[in-house]
């Protein structure tokens, strides 16, 4: 089976790099690209039964973005999940060039966030994403493996 994946990042080139790495890995569905946290919330977290992928959605999200930053977006996502207007099953991974311990600590404070990947995404990074997702949803991956 393949993992549905979304990349939320304002840098076109970073989305491109991630997309190519994930494509090359083979374990992911075609990458859904979103330009900012605000755009993600607007497009995918505004109505009931909006985006409800057939499998839990893997989200790679940048921290430093115009408008809501990555953390503000995740906080808002959590709120909207409770209101039932956001995808319920998600695995969120921070996807950033920041190695700042403060950012890592902030990421760890969200229950939705399962990992922290530093840019650029390489082959090893793509595999790590795959494994984290598997660990989070062993049944889903195994049933079609």
């Amino acid at each position: 089976m393949k993992i549905p994946v979304m990349v939320i990042d304002d840098e076109t080139v970073d989305r491109y790099t991630a997309k190519r790495r994930l494509d090359k890995h083979g374990g992911f569905e075609e990458v859904v690209e979103v330009c900012s946290g605000d755009q993600f919330l607007e497009r995918h977290c505004t109505e009931k039964n909006g985006l409800q992928p057939h499998r839990p959605l893997l989200i790679l999200i940048d921290i430093n973005m115009p408008g809501r930053n990555g953390f503000e977006t995740i906080a808002e996502l959590e709120k909207r999940q409770k209101l039932g207007i956001a995808p319920q099953a998600v695995v969120v991974m921070m996807f950033t060039s920041s190695g700042n311990p403060k950012d890592k600590a902030a990421a760890a404070s969200f229950s939705l966030v399962r990992g922290y990947i530093e840019k650029p995404l390489d082959a090893a990074g793509a595999e790590e994403l795959y494994q984290i997702y598997r660990a989070a949803f062993p049944n889903i991956v195994d049933e079609t493996a």
């Binding site: 840098e11 080139v13 970073d14 790099t17 060039s97 920041s98 530093e118 840019k119 650029p120 995404l121």
Partner: peptide, 8 residues
């Protein structure tokens, strides 16, 4: 950040 982009 841009150096990471270039590296990628």
């Amino acid at each position: 950040a841009p150096l990471c982009s270039i590296e990628g």
